[in-house]
């Protein structure tokens, strides 16, 4: 049996972390969460999660900066950005950084599910 896929949820709203954690644990994932970019980087370094669900607007280093630093640790991370901001400029900018998955809050849960499943399939097919 393949190892469980490890998911890291990063959001400064704890309720969101708790909810996403519960949701994907039920679906059989290993889930970690971080309430800030700083915390996320420490966990990322140590735990090397397969997929990161990342909020943008956070105190301290924001999601964009966190993404850049994650890329230094791992050049091709599987990151899903979930942000309250819905502006094209930011989405374009994130694309130039290499973000391919972007969801706007409030999200459709099935979009989040689909992206996670897509990444999970990619990971499983590599093994």
């Amino acid at each position: 049996m393949p190892e469980k896929i490890k998911l890291l949820v990063v959001d400064d709203e704890e309720l969101i972390c708790n909810y996403v954690e519960q949701r994907f644990k039920k679906k059989g994932f290993d889930v970690l969460f971080a309430l800030s970019g700083e915390e996320a980087l420490v966990i990322f370094e140590k735990e090397r999660p397969d997929i990161v669900i990342l909020d943008i607007m956070m105190q301290g280093i924001n999601g964009i900066e966190t993404f850049k630093r994650i890329k230094k640790i791992c050049p091709n991370p599987k990151v899903i950005i979930v942000s309250a901001l819905d502006n094209n400029e930011q989405i374009e900018y994130l694309k130039t950084l290499g973000v391919s998955s972007y969801l706007t809050k409030p999200i459709l849960l099935k979009d989040l599910d689909n992206l996670v499943v897509k990444f999970a399939d990619e990971i499983n097919s590599k093994i």
Partner: peptide, 24 residues
Amino acid sequence: KKSYVLTSSKGKKGSVIPKEYIRM
């Protein structure tokens, strides 16, 4: 947003759907 948004919520950590987080 031309959709239904979870506007308010309350409950146990982990069970409660965070407000403004999801839409349908």
